[in-house]
Write a protein that binds this DNA or RNA. Structure first.
Ligand SMILES: [Mn+2]
Ligand SMILES: [Mn+2]
Ligand SMILES: [Zn+2]
Ligand SMILES: [Zn+2]
Lengths: 135, 135
DNA sequence: AAAATTAATGCAACTTAGTTGCATTTACAA
DNA sequence: TTGTAAATGCAACTAAGTTGCATTAATTTT
């Protein structure tokens, strides 16, 4: 956990305090974080533009990857084994329609190829009710 | 083609000229249409608010379904065998990162269930280069 | 250590997709 | 024809995300 965090910092240009703050949030749980949530939670510590830019840098470094949910909001989740040059972690996500939480799933979902088309990435979002909201 | 179009109109409350215009656009190709594109193309024929509202009604009627692409734009595509009460057509989509076009795919991609979670829908987006842009 | 360079940040203004309220018009039924 | 409910237009609004530019902080060079 702590080790991978250090690896993360190695990938980006400057390991500032604010960058560390962002990375630590992603280390805590195996959940994605929405930018709206992050800018709110960090509003006293840094400007929202800074949040956007740090997330952008983290993505380019292969630390996190981004996607949009069906409400049009942008989310980020930590990558597993990606780098600045190789973004290969395309795990599926699960969003609870009750609480909005997005979990990162470790399952592999095989996708068939399509003739005459080049598939570069696959985004899979399962939607339903999460463990907490189901009971 | 023409028959299914008539079925479509039966599902919604009033078959106005503008509603027919929208439905006809979806009948033409097996491609999804972005709301931004639609409001632009129809800007001389109807207000953008009307476009949004008609699409909303068409979705509630089971004529089309909506989703968001990774650029945060909302898209609509025609449903296959859905109704106001049963939205079961969850076909995957393919978006070309060159031209932006989104195709509806007829393939079935099996998704495993997750313990302690209720999966209600699955959204799958393949990204890459389409037939036209690949050559 | 001081100066020079480069990256990171804050702030305000901006862009734009999508929504809302309300007045008006159109469609349909009584 | 009259009454009622749905559909539409228009303007104002909301909010996520972006951009430009001045300032600050970190790193490198001398
Ligand atoms: Mn990744
Ligand atoms: Mn459907
Ligand atoms: Zn939940
Ligand atoms: Zn293309």
């Amino acid at each position: 956990m702590q080790l991978s965090c250090i690896n993360f910092i190695d990938m980006i240009r400057r390991k500032t305090k604010k960058v560390e703050t962002l990375i630590n949030l992603f280390e805590q749980k195996n959940e994605a974080l929405s930018v709206v949530d992050l800018t709110n939670r960090l509003s006293t510590q840094m400007n929202k533009t800074t949040v956007y830019r740090i997330l952008d840098r983290l993505e380019q470094s292969g630390v996190v990857h981004s996607f949009n949910d069906s409400n049009g909001l942008r989310w980020y989740a930590k990558c597993n084994g990606c780098s600045a040059t190789k973004h290969t972690d395309t795990h599926p996500h699960f969003q609870c329609t009750d609480c909005g939480t997005i979990e990162c799933l470790s399952m592999e979902i095989p996708v068939p190829s399509i003739s005459n088309r080049q598939i570069n990435s696959v985004e899979i979002m399962l939607k339903g009710t999460c463990e907490r909201c189901i009971s």
